[in-house]
Design a protein around this nucleic acid. Structure first.
Lengths: 200, 200, 200, 200
DNA sequence: AATGAATGAGATTTCATTCAT
DNA sequence: TATGAATGAAATCTCATTCAT
């Protein structure tokens, strides 16, 4: 019988359940205030069972965050690969990021809460890597726009970071004010500001 | 002897020492991961002494954050009161915020770390209030610009939030990448992006 | 395997071990002076383990006291249900109470120490309830004696309280003077005093 | 100038203020739960000042209790010295004790709370001594009654202890049930029970 | 003598991690 | 593999005592 894969599939499914519970609790409470008790309960496993899947609380956190970052990255890459003009691509990117943040508020929170000065250095390093990758990817889009003459020749890296900050900050603001994150008005506003500024 | 004022002055000086130590540790570790042991050691007091100045860890945190927020707010108000044209005022605002963040990296970190979903509700409420005040103040500047016809009639509130996110995000990014926060290039870039966007 | 009951039985046994240790320490030191360290050591568990069985020190104390009070109450009820003449029942009651106090010196001490002005209001209330119940029960016996004409028609409630004070006070006195609590002489003396007074 | 005595008198007055505050707080909270902060505040002194009058918290407690016990003892002695027949003297004794307990509820509570198993051995010893003295004194009265043929020849020591328990227990019961401690009915009841028992 | 800020030992409580079943 | 009871280190907070003023 070839049921090894099934077993392995089941194991992965369980691991995903744990990661999901972890994401929810870590996002709500932060790395330190979250307890394995709560995560275990949410995942419907005994506390000890988590240690069959992750080496420690820190490992669980790191794994969860890594997974989310990869998913986010892949999503961004997909958008960047779309056959669109630079300005349209910016709009699509803004909309997509807002959508992702709306569908995964946990990730949105984690991004704010745990980015700066992670005590766990390894996690911090990984996070930094992902941000650099993202910046590099978006920079490409900006450079394309410059080449095509539709974007002014400003610093592409700074521009990428600014775009991310604009969208992420907007999503956080909506979240805290109990407003819709993926609001078309907001997307239009952000895109407009990014492309044209506020000058008359 | 009229040494009551001196005693009181000394007490306030000690309180400031504690608040400073608290700010440093809370900024680095976050509310939960920070320990009173570390704060006490940094303030060069015994652990118990802190309780002569603050009722609890939470109270210490709240007091510290409140003080920083007030200082920040006053700083912003000063800039907004300067007799400058809207565009110049934006530039001045960006420069000032970057300067403040550079001089008080702890505050910069705290702003990121503790803004979302503070478990301590009271602190969260206060923080929200300060953000609303700031948004209102900056909105005023934006409205002035619109009246004068130098700013396009976009949503002033969204515009204010965006400006804050742009600058704060930039500062965080610089901090994490070990770059100078209050970099004239960066200030110029941010101002330019905000006013004119990136379109050619 | 039907070992759920066994597990549950073991858990209850452990709980009883903790309650016993708690009783001993609380009786000796009182609620406040007793430490969880000492209780845990006596129960041969780690400090933290106690929190798997009780929510807090106060909860442990309350649970322990409640259990003891219930046991005491049931014991008194048994005696009152015996088919004896009132005077004989008084004698039996005195003997039984002295025996219980001798076998459970901890309870005897607790009764003195923690009766008055419990800071923990809930515990105090419960204790009062048990005392009222006991008084009611013994009052019944006194009323029976009055009906049968063997007891003079004095206030049954005051009489019940007096009997309890007489026996409890005697036991405390014996305890403090390192004398036998359940001494037949003492029992006879107390019964005689209660029934006939000291007049010649 | 002979103002040493005045100074000394003032010092004693202050000491009394502290002892009074101590009595109130210790009676309410018990030895352990009481804090010097609360006592100092009630005495209207700074905490450190107490150490100019007493060596330690334990010393303060012991001094306070000793003083109360001496006052109580002297009161009892006065009654026992009255030129009354034994039965009348019993009645007077009961009334006096109830009165004292009513006027000094703190002392009444202290007697219950701290009698058994004082962790502070020295205090416990002293308390025991006073109880023995009291028992001896009351025993004398009982013996007189026996000699005069008005009391049956029962154990005078046990009889003394019983009388004390009866009255003290009654006072505690009244206190806990928010009833008047020095109630003439109660005094009559207790005297009657002690002298004649409850038999018809 | 009086003060009260400072101390630090010690108390309660939490929770990541282990391990016998 | 899954469990959850047990552990004990570490955190917050209290308070008797000291001491410089």
């Amino acid at each position: 019988m070839d049921n090894k894969p099934r077993k392995e599939r089941e194991r992965q499914a369980k691991k995903q359940d744990i990661l999901k519970a972890a994401r929810e609790v870590f996002a709500q409470k932060g790395l330190h205030a979250a307890t394995l008790d709560e995560i275990a309960e949410k995942a419907e496993f005994a506390k000890g069972t988590l240690y069959g899947y992750f080496q420690s609380k820190d490992d669980l956190f790191a794994s969860m965050l890594e997974e989310e970052l990869v998913k986010f990255e892949q999503c961004i890459i997909q958008v960047l690969n779309l056959p669109l003009a630079p300005a349209a691509k910016v709009e699509k990117l803004v909309k997509t990021m807002l959508l992702v943040f709306e569908q995964n508020e946990d990730f949105l929170r984690l991004l704010s809460k745990e980015r700066p000065g992670m005590s766990n250095i390894q996690v911090g390093e990984k996070m930094m890597d992902h941000f650099k990758t993202l910046t590099r990817l978006v920079s490409g889009m900006v450079k394309d726009g410059i080449k095509e003459g539709v974007f002014a020749a400003k610093d592409p890296v700074r521009t990428s970071v600014a775009l991310f900050n604009l969208v992420h900050g907007s999503a956080m603001s909506s979240l805290l004010n109990h407003k819709k994150i993926n609001d078309p008005e907001e997307a239009k506003f952000l895109t407009g500001l990014f492309l044209n500024g506020i000058k008359a």
